[in-house]
Design a protein around this nucleic acid. Structure first.
Lengths: 319, 319
DNA sequence: CCGATATAGGACGGTATCTGTCCTATTTGG
DNA sequence: CCAAATAGGACAGATACCGTCCTATATCGG
């Protein structure tokens, strides 16, 4: 076993929550315990704080330092992380959505094929159950495009526009933007010679062509700002207005990052304003609050809730 | 920079989706390009397949091999993975739930404190929004106990039993078991000198004492099997029976791992049987199917749905 | 078809590093 | 107090590494 390999193996052992006595490490690594002590020193020099407890029953373990050490995962752990990241990508968390994708792309790149297969099948099996209104983005497309953005490679894909019109695209992908529960891609369309925004759940059969392109500055300088503005201008939006029979702090906690505008009416109720592009989702969030509420509008939401209420009442009133 | 440090730094660069020409790597690592070639060879000897494209515009990148290479994450990526794993722990996925926890424990152990703080605040901000019926387990408790299971350390915690009776426990934690959407801990209670099963969302202020204990064999040999049997015997369960106006394949897809027993009635409808310990959750899954349905029982579910239906109808019929 | 720019790898000498085998000091739990 | 654990100095022999040459080969663009 080479020098670097032994150091990595040691790091992997020390990342376990348990404590390792030096003698056992020496045996596993096939060296003397003096060398183990030297290896531990080396790791400390690299900035990874190996904690040691002295005395009988003592041992070594890796503690939290100032920088992330290399993570040494076994097969199952790698699969678990990949599945977790894929699920996270379907419900982007504000602030870390892009980092989450970068991590997924990095992992996907080095994931052995047999593990990648397990990830796919597990993702398929659990896709629908996580949340009925999570984004329908295919994680595979997301990964391909996230990789292409970083590698600055051109991408070809099929796009199903809003009216069901399909088209083939050839673009220079500049940035992925998570807006609410959807992913958008800001890209420069090579054939149309202009900027375009694509909704990722309408993208399919994406492939990176391998052709590199020069960095482009997004219109207006900031991609996130540009996509946000364009989407609010063009996409259909519903502005929900409702009164919730729930103290304002509780409502904020239950709605979390979906809170919208909340303001207290009295100690037991508050008003709520929120903007979304489907009434389904608005109705879903409202009904999962578990409290009484009154909806002021819009009419589409009222109608949708009326249908929902009738359906539920009808489902039981035969008894 | 030491030898091993340079190798790790190289590995970190090669994990990026982009391709790196040898000359640029040499510059970044502060060595000649001949040494870079030797380092690449070393990585290949370690089993990490560095892919190289020859010719002009060529370069190096890390490909998928037979084993997982050490993952070198930047701060944001590490936070994203931790948040993803915490979310995954709240909605355990059959088959990889334990691995998911192991990975989380491993990451938590080495996560720099400033990043750990960001993870906590992000988790708090998004806890409620993921799904209103996800498990209420505190990821911090979960991590502490998962670590103690692996390290075979005794744990003390406060436990709120079903009737609201609080108690302090001192146990030897043997295994965490994910059952449906809940986590259970099988442990040997030191003071009561017998096996006990704890629901993790009722555990608080857990601390590992540091005292080690000898490995124990779970009663019956298999912890998962034991916990499953005990829980079905003792925990309250509701057996939902309903007819769904949805083709059976579609229902299976939408319910995913929550499918229970589905059997086709005709081309457009099917019957559904499922067991859960709360009617809230049964009602939630039923109403998020987005189809007409008829509930046969149990009476508690019917009553719950009646309240839900009335609430929704009331919320709009003033208009 | 040719030149520019990549990867690939052999040979060699000087330098640095690493390992095992001693040794002693110190801490901790039973 | 004793056993077992971390901590680390000193030394000698072996090993590995690095830079500087060199040539071969593959690929893309003009």
């Amino acid at each position: 076993m080479s020098d670097a390999a032994r150091l990595l193996r040691l790091l992997s052992l020390l990342q376990t929550p348990r404590e390792w006595p030096g003698s056992e490490l020496a045996e596993r690594l096939g060296v003397t315990s003096r060398t183990v002590r030297r290896d531990v020193d080396r790791l400390r020099d690299l900035g990874y704080p190996v904690e040691a407890t002295m005395g009988a029953l003592g041992g070594y373990r890796l503690g939290a330092g100032k920088a992330m050490p290399p993570l040494l995962l076994d097969d199952e752990e790698a699969v678990a992380i990949a599945v977790g990241l894929r699920t996270a990508a379907r419900q982007p968390v504000a602030g870390i959505a892009e980092a989450s994708l970068r991590a997924l792309a990095k992992l996907q790149q080095v994931l052995p094929p047999r593990l990648a297969r397990r990830v796919s099948s597990l993702t398929a099996a659990t896709a629908a159950s996580a949340s009925p209104f999570a984004s329908l983005v295919d994680p595979a497309q997301l990964t391909i495009i996230a990789g292409a953005v970083q590698a600055r490679e051109r991408v070809r894909f099929a796009y199903a526009a809003q009216e069901g019109v399909a088209s083939k695209r050839h673009v220079e992908p500049v940035q992925l933007v998570a807006l609410g529960r959807r992913w958008y891609l800001l890209a420069f369309d090579v054939e149309r010679d202009d900027w375009r925004i694509f909704r990722l759940d309408r993208v399919s059969t994406a492939v990176a062509t391998g052709a590199r392109f020069a960095a482009r500055v997004a219109p207006g300088g900031d991609a996130t700002e540009y996509v946000t503005r364009k989407m609010y201008e063009t996409a259909p939006t519903y502005r929900a207005r409702a009164t919730l029979r729930l103290p304002v702090e509780l409502a904020r906690a239950r709605l979390a990052d979906f809170a919208g505008d909340l303001s207290a009416l009295d100690d037991d109720s508050c008003t709520w304003h929120s903007v979304e592009d489907t009434v389904d989702y608005l109705a879903f969030r409202l009904t999962s609050l578990g409290c009484d509420f009154t909806v002021q509008g819009p009419p589409e939401l009222v109608e949708h809730l009326r249908v929902m209420g009738e359906r539920i009442t009808r489902s039981v009133d035969s008894l």
